[in-house]
Design a binder for these strands. Sequence first.
DNA 1: TTCACTATTGATATGTTATAACATCCGAAG
DNA 2: CTTCGGATGTTATAACATATCAATAGTGAA
Lengths: 160, 160
Amino acid sequence: MSDPIGFQCADHGTCRTTLLARAQAHCDSLGLRLTPVRRRTLEILLVEHRALGAYDVLALLAAEGLGSQPPVAYRALDFLVKAGFAHKIEALNAYTACVHPGLDHTPAFLICRTCETVAEADTALTKGRLGDAARAAGFTIERTVVEATGLCPDCADRAA
Amino acid sequence: MSDPIGFQCADHGTCRTTLLARAQAHCDSLGLRLTPVRRRTLEILLVEHRALGAYDVLALLAAEGLGSQPPVAYRALDFLVKAGFAHKIEALNAYTACVHPGLDHTPAFLICRTCETVAEADTALTKGRLGDAARAAGFTIERTVVEATGLCPDCADRAA
DNA sequence: TTCACTATTGATATGTTATAACATCCGAAG
DNA sequence: CTTCGGATGTTATAACATATCAATAGTGAA
Ligand SMILES: [Zn+2]
Ligand SMILES: [Zn+2]
Ligand SMILES: [Zn+2]
Ligand SMILES: [Zn+2]
């Protein structure tokens, strides 16, 4: 576990442009195509900095004339997830930008149930006790979903 | 982590009747009502021993004249989840019976992507590094979703 | 018993999330 | 230029989930 990329971003504008540039570079080096819809979808996730449903994304894309039917959003999101630029939050059926795109990692998420802000951390869960249990059962882990729902500091303060 | 309730059940018939009886006792002691639809829904989950979608459950209930509209299944499943007799598998949008019903615990799941069999283990994840990260971020964890997808021993053998 | 109260069920409709299927466009390789 | 594969456009539908309101059945007090 490291870098629980926090609920407040010191310099959000910079973090966004940096991550976009990194995604572009990663695509260039691998021959992947960060097309306008894909790029804009990633930018939307980065700007919002929280979990967005596919139809939320679609509405924003549609407002800009980038497509208006569900497959547009799902294709773009699938690309981003497969390329390692975004993650799906299963507990919300929603999507969020990855904070270290392109790197192979097993993310864990802290999800605020009030503002839907998402913080991404790393976890080596498969090396811990879950991994032990899996090995004992003869189970081969291919993918892990680790999501903690609760209250972020801001919302906790507001509720108090 | 303990008891990775395995992919093969030594005595499946007994495990089912035992868990059903425990659920009944738990309801009696708390004044909850394990009505026919609820009881049968739990039995279905116990017999199948894997993750079932709400509409899968509904189809089985409907075949027995226990209701045919979506709310029937969702109400029964919600009751079972709230009462601690079943869990929702977020990665599959599906439901599975709990292996130690009524007890307060934070489950972790090993899910076979081929046969959809589900093994339930416990995890004290919030006491580990995810808990550390949450505390560092000022995040209050209320619920965790821990789901590992992969191949169970049987399916791995079959694939080899 | 009768009443009021609450939990449960029945029934219809709708909302939300996700994919199938097929046509078309477009840029790179040959 | 042609061919071919990835990307998009478009329509339709599958799959998952809830809102709403009426009817019914247990529960306990008057
Ligand atoms: Zn990530
Ligand atoms: Zn919050
Ligand atoms: Zn359980
Ligand atoms: Zn299997």
